[in-house]
Write a protein that binds this DNA or RNA. Structure first.
Lengths: 332, 332
DNA sequence: CTGTTAGCGCATTCAG
DNA sequence: CTGAATGCGCTAACAG
């Protein structure tokens, strides 16, 4: 293993000088020595030992990203946005997947703390469990007390900077647009009752219907994934329009209707939420609420890294969704 | 920042004892001291400084994963499989995305080397550029000379353990199945000429047709993504069956045909490759070659981490694909 | 079973 | 501008 010391010796300079030329120091080094060091490093195939550097500097160049599931395009898009920012700043990204297990989320925050990552990004919905939220928050506080920076994408109840998608507002806009198409009887494939993101979308949707004086939608709970949409769709009894609280669930719903010979949108309209890029070529094209997923991931990391937020109040930045009407919904 | 020394002092024991109970040592520690240390660590909110640990141990608990694009479900599935193995072994994963830039791939290997990751996983197709391949290989060799472990998913031309998908064989099987349906005139949406994965699939497909005495397919090159499939499909002139060399391209092709009023499979059959899970609900359901993506990612990491492969010859493990006939292709 | 001690590789004062 | 020396937090002999 080639060390800085090897390089220094090979170049006939001191350790300090080698360090200064090879790793971004503000200090200047004479051109001739600089050249010697660079050449020696090159010849020997020197690679900085980041662990040693981190230890000496007391700060790493790694950021931690906690997501539920990388194969869910929602998180992949968020991660992609965050990673672009990380790359721009020369940082590496450590990714942890919780598979929706809150315990694992807490454990990973502890692990990332141990890794002394520069910042932690928590993405994905919070859940309605005060005990879990409290423990997660404790772990985050511990991390922040020693200089760790945190940002979330989702609900802002962790006392951190957060990027908050306009779930309720977007769902309300969607409800109004759908009502504008003439629909009156709705069903909502509502996801798990304890998932705050799902809750927000359901309540935004239902709230808007209520304001319009329309009957309350039928609520069918289930998992937040494709299969959850598939199963829940089977229980819809009497609706002209079905709102699945995310696109992936809507895909499941479409499959369910198709298998049962129920045509979309002729027999029933279907809408989703998120506007997942991979699903844009679906037939029928999905009416949905577009969220700027990559931007959200990018912005969250920027907030976490942003120096000005040092000791200030946690900031919440709302990212509005925009209704996109497509072929899966039709006027009544 | 709470250090091991703080914990030791607080518990009234030596640094070594604290280290032994808190971090997986084989050495035993008496129950009473153990309890004291654990309590002290708990009270103080101690978190191991992994950088220091890595430096002292000379080995990290992180693995590096290099992919082209996380939002491509192919890589997301591979990453997911690899991350499951990593989690089982208590390792963290550092992810780097190259966005198909070979230079970045090389640079990331260097960076991951600097991080002293335990192993590097290279996923995604190699390209037909000897100069780039050589430089990547040099960088990998440098990493391996100091104990780094490497595995690839794709072509085995880097002298590393590799998981090789049965691209040619799968494509050949597909060609035979399609010919069995009565098709004679084929087109292949072939992706970029320099992408080896694309090449393998094209040649496997064309080879099988030749063996059957059928005319050579029309080859249309383009990018390896959705838009590549979309554009290439427009140039297909005279075929009853179109083979897109991956599912994501097939989605683009379906969109192209749909927009032009060409019905699939009534007017033309379409097949893909990979069997991406997120796309299983497509209409019409896509005929494709199923690759066990998560298993491939998992297996690759296992090979890299596997001790027995220490100094032996690089192993190549083939993962066969299985033809899945669905509705996007029909008998002629 | 427990404590003492010498590095791991690098950044960074502080002198020169 | 350059070099010598100190310490970052932890592990792993080694000694007791």
């Amino acid at each position: 293993m080639v060390t800085l010391e090897d390089v220094a010796r090979h170049a006939g300079v001191s350790l300090a000088t080698a360090s200064r030329v090879l790793n971004g120091s503000t200090r200047q080094v004479g051109a001739s020595l600089r050249a010697k060091v660079e050449q020696a490093a090159q010849q020997l195939g020197y690679r900085t030992n980041v662990a040693a550097q981190t230890l000496a500097r007391g700060a790493s160049n790694v950021i931690g990203l906690v997501v539920h599931d990388l194969t869910d395009p929602y998180f992949a898009a968020l991660a992609d946005g965050a990673m672009r920012v990380a790359e721009d700043r020369g940082m590496m990204v450590m990714v942890a997947t919780t598979h929706r297990d809150p315990e694992r989320e807490i454990a990973y925050v502890a692990t990332l703390n141990a890794q002394r990552v520069r910042a932690v990004l928590l993405s994905g919905s919070r859940i309605a469990d005060p005990a879990v939220t409290r423990r997660l928050r404790e772990e985050l506080d511990r991390y922040r007390q020693t200089g760790g920076r945190v940002a979330c994408v989702g609900q802002s109840l962790l006392g951190t900077d957060t990027v908050a998608p306009g779930n309720a507002e977007g769902a309300a806009d969607l409800a109004r647009a759908l009502a504008g198409l003439g629909h009156r009887r709705f069903a909502v494939l509502a996801g798990p009752p304890w998932l705050l993101t799902a809750q927000d979308r359901v309540s935004g949707f239902a709230g808007a219907l209520a304001e319009l004086g329309l009957p309350a939608p039928q609520l069918v709970h289930g998992t937040f994934d494709r299969d959850g949409g598939y199963s829940a769709a089977a229980e819809v009894t009497d609706a002209t329009c079905v709102f699945a609280v995310n696109d992936v669930m809507a895909v499941g719903a479409l499959a369910s209707f198709r298998e049962r010979g129920i045509r979309v949108p002729e027999d029933v309209s279907v809408a989703g939420f998120d506007d997942i890029a991979t699903l844009r070529d679906l037939v029928p094209a999905l009416t949905t609420v577009r969220l700027p997923l990559p931007d959200m991931g990018a912005r969250a990391l920027e907030m976490a890294l942003d120096e000005t937020g040092e000791s200030a109040e946690p900031r919440t930045e709302r990212m509005a969704g925009r209704v996109v009407l497509r072929e899966s919904t039709r006027p009544l």
